[in-house]
Design a binder for these strands. Structure first.
Lengths: 110, 110
DNA sequence: ATTTTATACATAGAAGTCTTATGTATATAA
DNA sequence: TTATATACATAAGACTTCTATGTATAAAAT
């Protein structure tokens, strides 16, 4: 992703949130969406994304639908039932993480 | 640290911010401080902290003062000049990271 | 006509961070 | 006397991500 180690560990949470939001997406679409949302500040690399998608699929968090569009392969991913409930937990953890980091960075506000 | 991968990559930023705030601290003190600030939610493990401190020292970000207190060794760390300016960058990156993550999690607000 | 860019997938090797487990040592509380 | 708190440290393994590389089609630019 971008500079800074901070994004490490947030990839699966990002993917799961986007799929919750958009129903189903394919890999390349996810990279473009993240670039767009963050105004180019965060770029997800393919070397990180594809193995992550495969792992989430193997864990039963995502399921895949393969389609052929314009003579090109597309693998659409969507959350399974398990994945949907997992996403709730992930987002709660993310909120808690952000809250904790803000407590550290800005101790006066807490 | 705690559950969730999210904290990966945030350790050095946390350490640098705490040292900026408190002047100088020793390892054990840092672990306790973080536990206190986050109300026990974030626990920094020694296996992560000590190697991180050594690395930051090797990079010239931190410098160490060894003292003997109550027959126990203490290694106080503080930011070097380089470390102080590095901390400014790290905190800016953290703010940007949080902003980006919030854009992803809550696209309606942006 | 040919090269570059965009789309779309994939993996292998290396780098880097963190966890778990373990080790040393002193002081205090149970 | 045993457990807990204080205080340091490292080694092995797990895990994630990056860089580099590979395949393939289509469109745009030179």
């Amino acid at each position: 992703m971008k500079n800074s180690q901070l994004y490490k560990g947030s990839l699966t949470t990002i993917v799961m949130k986007l799929l919750e939001e958009n129903g189903r997406m394919y890999g390349y679409e996810i990279t473009q969406k993240v670039k767009e949302i963050t105004k180019g500040e965060l770029k997800i690399t393919e070397g990180a994304l594809y193995p992550a998608l495969h792992k989430l699929e193997a864990e039963g968090v995502l399921e895949v639908e393969i389609e052929n569009v314009d003579n090109r392969l597309r693998k659409y991913y969507k959350l399974t039932e398990k994945g949907t409930s997992e996403t709730v937990n992930r987002l709660a953890e993310l909120e808690e993480f952000i809250k904790n980091m803000q407590s550290i960075v800005n101790p006066k506000l807490t």
